[in-house]
Simulated scan of single mutants.
Amino acid sequence: MRQLRPRMAALLLAGLLPLLVGSAAGCGSGGDDVPPAAVEAPLPEAPATSDEPSPTTQAPAAVDVCALVTKKEAEELAGTKLDDAVPVRESCTYTAPASGPTAQVEVFVGDGAKKYLDIERELGHELRPLAGVGDETYVSFEAAFVNRSGLWVAVRLVRLNDPEENREPLERIAGTVAGRI
């Protein structure tokens, strides 16, 4: 648990609080369960810049985030049935029903996806480059990061399993996402 605290703090600072709070809903804390769609914290305002996209990201307005990973693909990745997608801003989350095993698939597009990758690097987490997929792709034990034409997409997998089991499925979903960007 101690290793997770710096990581959770970093994710919170990255403006991913709504997704983390949604992930925790129904985790048996004994408190009121709040569905992920009902929890939304304001994101920090971006500094004033020109209207041009940065060189590392594009505006994700033209991308249907939930179409990048379908419910069926999310269920295959998670190894269990999942609820319908919950889109929030530039993200999409599929969660397992409270009666099922713990599982969640999150998809982030644009600056949030790139920031997630940057945090993984800062924390020293192992990121393997995946050649031939998109312009730049990395896979860890819990996520895939794909850059194609300057647009970053991250797919995060939450499961209670041996993390090594997740690499190959994450590599496959990275290829699928790269083909849809």
Rank of each mutant, 00 (worst) to 15 (best):
residue 154 A to V: 02
residue 152 W to L: 02
residue 99 S to E: 12
residue 153 V to W: 00
residue 121 R to F: 06
residue 150 G to S: 11
residue 84 D to I: 03
residue 60 P to W: 04
residue 84 D to M: 11
residue 174 A to D: 02
residue 2 R to H: 11
residue 94 Y to I: 09
residue 64 D to A: 15
residue 26 G to Q: 04
residue 124 G to T: 11
residue 178 A to G: 03
residue 74 A to M: 04
residue 103 A to I: 05
residue 85 A to Y: 02
residue 176 T to M: 04
residue 129 P to K: 07
residue 102 T to I: 11
residue 139 V to N: 05
residue 179 G to Y: 00
residue 154 A to I: 01
residue 111 D to Y: 14
residue 102 T to W: 10
residue 11 L to V: 05
residue 86 V to T: 11
residue 107 V to R: 01
residue 11 L to E: 09
residue 15 G to N: 12
residue 12 L to V: 14
residue 170 L to W: 03
residue 114 K to W: 11
residue 109 V to K: 07
residue 181 I to N: 08
residue 88 V to M: 07
residue 34 V to C: 14
residue 122 E to I: 11
residue 7 R to H: 07
residue 64 D to T: 15
residue 93 T to P: 09
residue 115 K to W: 00
residue 14 A to V: 07
residue 22 G to D: 04
residue 62 A to D: 14
residue 8 M to P: 02
residue 147 N to W: 01
residue 170 L to K: 04
residue 175 G to T: 03
residue 88 V to H: 06
residue 11 L to N: 12
residue 31 G to L: 14
residue 86 V to N: 01
residue 94 Y to G: 06
residue 19 L to I: 10
residue 153 V to Y: 00
residue 105 V to D: 01
residue 3 Q to Y: 09
residue 58 Q to K: 10
residue 20 L to C: 12
residue 141 F to G: 15
residue 144 A to Q: 01
residue 128 R to D: 07
residue 31 G to Y: 11
residue 1 M to P: 14
residue 79 G to T: 15
residue 1 M to Y: 05
residue 151 L to Q: 13
residue 30 G to V: 07
residue 1 M to V: 13
residue 97 P to R: 13
residue 46 A to G: 15
residue 145 F to T: 05
residue 40 E to L: 10
residue 103 A to T: 06
residue 26 G to T: 04
residue 104 Q to H: 07
residue 124 G to M: 09
residue 158 V to S: 10
residue 165 E to G: 08
residue 99 S to N: 12
residue 61 A to Q: 12
residue 90 E to K: 07
residue 49 T to K: 14
residue 70 T to R: 02
residue 56 T to S: 06
residue 48 A to Y: 15
residue 89 R to M: 06
residue 178 A to C: 08
residue 174 A to F: 00
residue 131 A to D: 13
residue 33 D to N: 14
residue 180 R to L: 08
residue 96 A to C: 13
residue 87 P to F: 00
residue 142 E to T: 15
residue 105 V to I: 06
residue 43 L to P: 06
residue 153 V to P: 00
residue 17 L to E: 14
residue 35 P to T: 08
residue 157 L to C: 05
residue 17 L to R: 15
